[in-house]
Design a protein around this nucleic acid. Structure first.
Lengths: 148, 148
DNA sequence: TATTGTTATACTCTATAACTATA
DNA sequence: TATAGTTATAGAGTATAACAATA
């Protein structure tokens, strides 16, 4: 039985780059989720928090576009982060429809701790590569990710 | 506004390999889904059908393990494919608990057509790479995808 | 009239446990 | 007792449309 499962890797599906991409992402996502769980974060909420910790002061709309989430999903992620005091919505004086999202001091602390955990998980995940391979892979991946 | 969204790529999130992997996968998945839609298939059902078209005669359990789907998900995918006459569950004479999944003639035809569409979409998606870059990327990705 | 954020809703996906029939 | 497949169900994730406030 194990033989057959293993040999499925030799099929057209097993060498399909899209399939490999999906699998690699699933493994990476599972690692990240596990690393974040003890910090009370999921991958999505961590992404939002991390962007709120930068000094770019993104609007909800910008978070939505960059993370490819529906605006309504950003709302509920922010509701959650704001309830915990990690993020605040600040009105933009130049356009009163707009909220700018910024992390609080507590949010920055939480994010820094979470980031350590995620990065450790990632180092383990990418340990199959040496430094040069890692750089090559990331550079190519970046071009693919930025897309059209 | 566009400026800020674009410059989010310069943040730590924007250069995070896990984030790039997720994004590249999302783009690839969307392309594949669009290509398969007119063939009445989704990415999941196509994967199952494609594996059923090989000559390995996988069991449901093997499909479940290889595709990292819960056995119950495989059941409903097969129900759907079987209803359309593209796949059949054959009892394994050596163990009557086991079903072996094989594509019908109609299933092979459908799969071949769908495969053309997916592969065309993928060629477009990976057109950011030249041949050498594609091979390098795929080889590295494969090691990452097979994992531990 | 168009856009930002919000609410509500439904649909897909995923995870879990319990059941059956075989081993 | 353990395993393959099945059923049922609940939770998470995703997509959509309608709405109020503002531009």
């Amino acid at each position: 039985m194990q033989d057959t499962t293993t040999s499925l890797w030799e099929t057209s599906v097993g060498s399909d780059p899209a399939f490999l991409l999906a699998r690699a992402n699933a493994l990476s996502l599972a690692d990240a989720a596990a690393a974040l769980a003890s910090h009370g974060l999921k991958v999505r909420s961590y992404s939002v928090l991390a962007l709120a910790c930068g000094d770019l002061r993104p609007t909800q709309r910008e978070l939505s576009e960059f993370l490819r989430l529906d605006p309504s999903q950003v709302v509920s992620l922010l509701d959650d982060l704001e309830r915990r005091g990690w993020v605040s919505r600040e009105p933009d004086p130049r356009d009163r429809r707009v909220n700018v999202v910024v992390a609080t001091a507590a949010g920055r602390t939480a994010c820094a701790r979470a980031r350590e955990a995620v990065e450790a998980a990632q180092r383990a995940h990418f340990a199959v590569f040496d430094d040069e391979e890692f750089d090559t892979f990331t550079a190519l991946l970046r071009r693919l990710a930025i897309g059209p």
